[in-house]
C-alpha cells in the first residue's frame, strides 16, 4: 500500500509541476502564508491534517519552525493562554462530514445534475431558489438576483445560494462579481465536493469571460478534480 502512496505522491508532484501558472491558481487570496492551493478543503483532510503534517512538509514552501527560537530567547509569558478547559476540542470532530455522493454525469457536467447531488436546503431557501429560477427563465435577472439575496438573508452561509447568485451575475455580464461570489461560496462548501466542482466550473467560466484563459483552465481543472 505505501508503495502505491509513494507513486501517487510522485505523480501528483509531477502534475503540479506541469500545471504551471501557480500564481494565478490562488484567485484573490492575498496571503503571505504557505498555502497549498485549495489545500484541505474537505473535513476528513482537515481532521487528519495534524497527522499529515510530516507528509506535507516537503511541498509546503515556507514553514520555518520559528516558534522554538522565540521561545528560547525570552522568558515564558507571565499569563497562560486562557481557556485551559479546552475550547476547540469538539468543534472539529463534530463538524458533520456530509460527503455527498459524487454524481455520475460525465464531464463537463450540467449544473443541474451535479447540484442535484447536493441538496441540503430547507424549505424557505428552496422555495426562493425556485422562484429565482423562474424569474431567471423569463429573463428577469434583476428579479432573480433580488430573490436570491432574499434567500441569502435567510441562509447567508448556504453556498448554493451564492452559486446561483454568481450564475445570475454571470448571465448579466458581471463576470468579476460572479467570480467573487463563487469564491465566497467555496469558503462555505467544505464537505460538499459536488458543489465545489460547480463553483470552480463557474469560476472558470467567469474567468474565461474576463479573458483570463489560463486562470479559467486552472479553475476548470479544479472543477474536474473535485469530482
Amino acid at each position: 500500500m505505501s508503495k502505491h502512496a509513494i507513486i501517487l505522491i510522485a505523480l501528483v508532484t509531477l502534475l503540479a509541476g506541469c500545471a504551471g501558472s501557480q500564481q494565478r491558481a490562488i484567485p484573490v487570496v492575498e496571503s503571505g502564508g504557505p498555502l497549498t492551493p485549495g489545500a484541505m478543503r474537505d473535513n476528513r483532510a482537515r481532521q487528519s491534517a495534524g497527522t499529515a503534517q510530516t507528509a506535507q512538509q516537503p511541498t509546503v514552501t515556507v514553514m520555518p519552525q520559528g516558534e522554538s527560537e522565540a521561545v528560547q530567547t525570552y522568558a515564558v509569558p507571565s499569563a497562560p493562554i486562557g481557556g485551559i478547559e479546552v475550547y476547540h476540542a469538539d468543534s472539529i470532530s463534530s463538524t458533520p462530514s456530509t460527503a455527498a455522493p459524487a454524481p455520475t454525469s460525465p464531464m463537463p457536467i450540467g449544473n443541474q445534475a451535479r447540484l442535484a447531488a447536493d441538496e441540503q436546503l430547507d424549505g424557505a431557501v428552496l422555495a426562493l431558489l425556485t422562484t429565482a429560477k423562474q424569474q431567471q427563465g423569463s429573463g428577469d435577472f434583476n428579479g432573480a438576483a433580488s430573490s436570491l439575496e432574499r434567500a441569502q438573508r435567510i441562509a447567508p452561509r448556504e453556498p448554493q445560494v451564492l452559486y446561483r447568485l454568481a450564475e445570475v451575475r454571470l448571465a448579466q455580464g458581471d463576470a468579476g462579481q460572479a467570480e467573487q461570489l463563487a469564491q465566497r461560496g467555496l469558503s462555505y462548501s467544505n464537505g460538499r465536493p459536488a458543489l465545489q466542482a460547480g463553483l470552480w466550473d463557474l469560476i472558470a467560466r467567469a474567468r474565461a469571460q474576463q479573458g483570463n484563459t489560463s486562470g479559467a483552465q486552472e479553475a476548470q481543472n479544479r472543477a474536474r478534480v473535485n469530482l
Partner: peptide
C-alpha cells in the same frame, strides 16, 4: 469552524510549546 488552511494544535498554556490532548495545562 476553521477554514481549510487552519489546523488546531495542542499547546502548553504556559509555554506555548507543543503539547498533546489530555496533558495538564494543554489548550487547543
Amino acid at each position: 469552524t476553521p477554514p481549510g488552511n487552519v489546523v488546531m494544535a495542542w499547546v502548553d498554556a504556559y509555554s506555548g510549546l507543543g503539547s498533546a490532548k489530555g496533558c495538564p495545562g494543554a489548550v487547543q
